[in-house]
């Protein structure tokens, strides 16, 4: 039984009116938490709240828009978006375009991650390499990578290469920074321990620095997984005749807000899916880490 369940009823009383200037004490915060529990007694309020919000959004999107008489070409209702999706599936090879986008996301993400991690480890092990190369890397990061897309089309033509290159460029930087910081942050005493066993530089990397960087590498990969979808979409905007970005541009050209929304939703789902896959991999690789409990101060 959690502490909240055992709460006395006094804090369940309605919270006093706040002007927003009172200092919020721990007691206040607890009282508010308890009052939620009072409403949904015996239930995990997280799930109930989530379901409630989802329903409200869903109902508003479908019937709220109808009542407010929002024009479908401005903001289409959910049923209209669904209709449009079915239409695109039948007429515009939605499945093929979705698969094409997914494949580009995977290839761009994997290549970008490998490149970022590789450069991160290289810089981590050799400060000289970092000093020499980092101005160029930084310039590359600061330059708007989206603007490179037309250049890549000039170089490689209207095919898959430009959008994958844009994705690689977008993905690699956060991974590089995370890996570099992690390698730099390895406890020097751990390295000394390995050295006292006469470990070679290579052994120190494989047995200490590389595994020690795993949590940071995965933080980078999480960011990268979501950025990869953006990279591919931008690449498809600019050129090419495949992918959801292309369908999106087509939809826009035809004034078809339903198609635009549909592709946005599918792109979002691809992003969520890739993020979840990274988290699954992270859970497996980092299974040695203490399990974190939400709100647990000791962790």
């Amino acid at each position: 039984m959690s502490q909240r369940d055992a709460a006395p009823c006094a804090p369940c009383a309605p919270a006093p009116y706040l002007t927003g200037h009172e200092p919020v004490t721990l007691e206040d915060a607890k009282a508010r938490q308890w009052s939620w529990n009072f409403i949904f007694r015996g239930m995990s309020h997280n799930w109930v709240l989530s379901a409630l919000i989802f329903t409200v959004v869903f109902v508003f999107w479908e019937w709220g828009l109808k009542i407010l008489e929002v024009e479908p070409f401005i903001f289409p209702r959910l049923s209209k978006i669904w209709e449009e999706t079915v239409h695109m599936w039948a007429e515009s090879e939605l499945l093929r375009h979705t698969w094409n986008t997914c494949l580009s996301v995977i290839i761009g993400f994997v290549l970008g991650s490998l490149l970022g991690a590789l450069i991160g480890y290289l810089f981590g092990m050799s400060p000289t390499a970092e000093i020499v190369a980092s101005p160029y890397i930084l310039a590359l990061q600061i330059a708007p990578k989206v603007a490179f897309a037309p250049l890549f089309i000039l170089w490689f033509g209207y095919n898959e290469t430009p959008k994958i290159l844009v994705t690689v460029l977008i993905v690699f930087f956060p991974i590089l920074i995370n890996v570099l910081t992690a390698v730099r942050g390895v406890d020097p005493a751990m390295v000394s321990l390995a050295r006292s066993f006469n470990a070679s530089r290579w052994q120190i990397f494989w047995k200490i620095e590389f595994p020690a960087s795993m949590p940071a590498l995965f933080s980078g990969l999480r960011i990268g997984a979501t950025l990869a979808v953006i990279g591919v979409t931008v690449g498809e905007f600019v050129g090419g005749n495949t992918g959801l970005g292309y369908l999106l541009v087509q939809g826009e050209a035809g004034g078809n807000a339903g198609a635009v929304f549909s592709t946005i939703i599918i792109l979002t789902m691809i992003g969520i899916l890739s993020y979840c896959l990274v988290i699954l991999a992270e859970r497996w690789v980092l299974r040695y880490m203490p399990k974190r409990k939400f709100g647990d101060v000791n962790n």
Binding site: D187, A189, M190, L193, S196, K207, I208, P211, A212, M214, Y288, M289
Partner: peptide, 14 residues
């Protein structure tokens, strides 16, 4: 020679 420090220096992933 082997040394032992105040920190246990156990590798968390092992």
């Amino acid at each position: 020679v082997a040394f032992m420090l105040q920190k246990d220096l156990l590798l968390p992933w092992r």
